[in-house]
Simulated scan of single mutants.
Amino acid sequence: MVDWLNAILDAMDQAPPPAGSFLHLILDRYLKEARRIRKAPVSDDLTTKLAALGQSEAETFREVLSAVGAKDHLDAFTAEPASQPAQGHHADYHAAFAEHRHHIANTLLQLAPNGYSIDSLCEPLGPSADEMVRAMVEASSRELARTSAATPPTVAAPSTS
């Protein structure tokens, strides 16, 4: 049944993504985590983790832009994420971190000539920009999972007593 439904969906898709494309999917995951971070409970531990991730993601973003020859897309907003906030402003920092991620994802998707990959912009023997983004998102996801900020909230089962 699933194979049949997938075959029907594939036949109906007027512009399917090229085979092996994943950048759009990995960035969708990246943005979903950003939305969860906005809603995550505020804690010093999470804010410290976000500050470190923000620095790491900014560095990878600079490397990706360099690999695709698009350093002119690097601006102050994405070059250096906000430093860790003073006590009491953690919720604002969570929002700023999420906005930083949105800006990175939107920039990368706008650079993708076909909307699915930026590898065609790389030098022939250079690193895969898509793989660089994948590694960044997966590393960030693992770190966020350790603090449970990226995992959806669980709903307790209703009591039967």
Rank of each mutant, 00 (worst) to 15 (best):
P113A: 08
R101E: 14
S66I: 03
D28R: 15
A52L: 12
R38F: 00
L23A: 06
H103G: 07
M1C: 09
G126K: 08
T78I: 04
S141I: 01
S43T: 10
P16I: 05
T48I: 03
E131M: 13
L144C: 13
A11P: 02
M136I: 01
G126R: 08
L27W: 01
P85F: 00
L74W: 03
T78W: 01
P158D: 05
T147L: 05
A7N: 01
L46D: 00
S140T: 12
L121C: 11
R35L: 05
A34P: 08
W4D: 07
D13R: 15
V137L: 11
A96I: 07
K71I: 13
A58R: 04
R146I: 06
N106R: 15
S117M: 09
S120Y: 00
P113M: 07
L5V: 10
S66P: 02
M12D: 03
N106M: 13
L9M: 09
L74R: 03
G20K: 06
H90D: 08
A98F: 02
A82T: 03
A70I: 04
P152G: 12
D92R: 06
E99K: 15
E63Q: 15
E80H: 04
N106C: 09
S161H: 08
R38C: 14
A11I: 01
S66M: 07
V2Q: 06
A40M: 05
L27Y: 01
Q55C: 10
G54L: 10
L125A: 15
H94M: 04
A19T: 08
Y93S: 05
R101K: 15
T78G: 02
